[in-house]
Design a binder for these strands. Sequence first.
DNA 1: TCAGCGCATATTGGCGACAATATATTCAGC
DNA 2: GCTGAATATATTGTCGCCAATATGCGCTGA
Lengths: 217, 217
Amino acid sequence: MADDSAVLDALRDAILRGEFVAGQRLVEIDLCERFCSSRFAVRAAIPVLASEGLVDVQRHRGARVRAISIEEAIEITEVRQLLEGLTAARAAERATPADIADLREIITQLRHAAGSGELVRYSEADARLHALVRRIAAHETAASIIERLRAQMARQAFMLSLVPGRQAMSLAQDEAIVDAIEARDAPAAERAMRRHVASVIESLRSDSQADLAAAVP
Amino acid sequence: MADDSAVLDALRDAILRGEFVAGQRLVEIDLCERFCSSRFAVRAAIPVLASEGLVDVQRHRGARVRAISIEEAIEITEVRQLLEGLTAARAAERATPADIADLREIITQLRHAAGSGELVRYSEADARLHALVRRIAAHETAASIIERLRAQMARQAFMLSLVPGRQAMSLAQDEAIVDAIEARDAPAAERAMRRHVASVIESLRSDSQADLAAAVP
DNA sequence: TCAGCGCATATTGGCGACAATATATTCAGC
DNA sequence: GCTGAATATATTGTCGCCAATATGCGCTGA
């Protein structure tokens, strides 16, 4: 393999999947071996990941996977609250009947996952719902920022999905969002989405030591 | 000179100052001569600028300065409206008396510039006001996104500052923002900031061919 | 005269080697 | 035994070369 963008994606995925502990040094030679690529490819990938906020680079000291604090996670989620609210409002204005059927389909999947307690499957379906709302909204600028912010919080989001009782509340909130979009009620969709993301902020605020518990999975 | 970050900043500035026409090819060799640097430095700078949304890179076809459409400018400003509203609200909660004195100082500068019709000086002071609000808000995530979005619209923002009559309206809006921050009224500060940015969106919507007129300066 | 094809050239992509620098280790002195 | 500096090593920064590829031009044929 000698494709630079392949290394970029592989390294990004590895960081997002939590295969590197926060703060760990990313030594170029090691990454070359890991991804069977040349040093040139990883050197092209690292600045891009730095601009995405996934790694921190210091001159002559290399790159480290960026550790984000609870305060920073709250900041990120505050911004997401506004932007995902915007996409929900636009989705309510633009959704076609086919779009609404797709949203309902995901709600069904969420219900099944919540009912059988499949946490990972639930959080994947929730991510699909948000992604679909973004696609319906067709707001490229907001979507790309949201995706970048979600990536930065990937591990923390996974952690929150393990907090018991969140699924039930989250499911009701997701249903409220889809209801508002179906009713073509943009302000209601925006409010529902903001409430949904706000509950993430509250979770972050309440148990600030949850990130320590997240070391288990 | 052989400093890579210097080339990055110089190239970014050159693009922001409008020294390249939109869509122009950025040939690596030309940039080397222009900035008296090695090809290595420009090759390191280009991916970073691409991730900042200032240039577009295509495989084996090089980089071009990214042309943003009116629709995209509106999208960017819609996001800025939300995020700058957030910073205004936080600034209202956190501003010290010294901060408020600094804000008042900039308002004075804005009045002078508007009174003597110094358009460039006015828009510079306006940018300083927004930057100060961001600093007071101390919301790193929102601030970095806003700065990136403002950079993408740098030329368009300059263009709007030339529309006659905008200064008077803009000045009143800026004063309303500072008044609300001084009164520690976060919701009012957020509303005032949103109105301020909303007027930019309206300007973009109303004369969509203003970017053609901007070829003059 | 125009269309299609092949070639030449300009430009970017990729790589190995070398230089510069930060960090760790070790040794000497107190 | 501890502290400080000097050296050694590991890692990143920089460069020039060659290969791969897109684009533009000229040529040939209908």
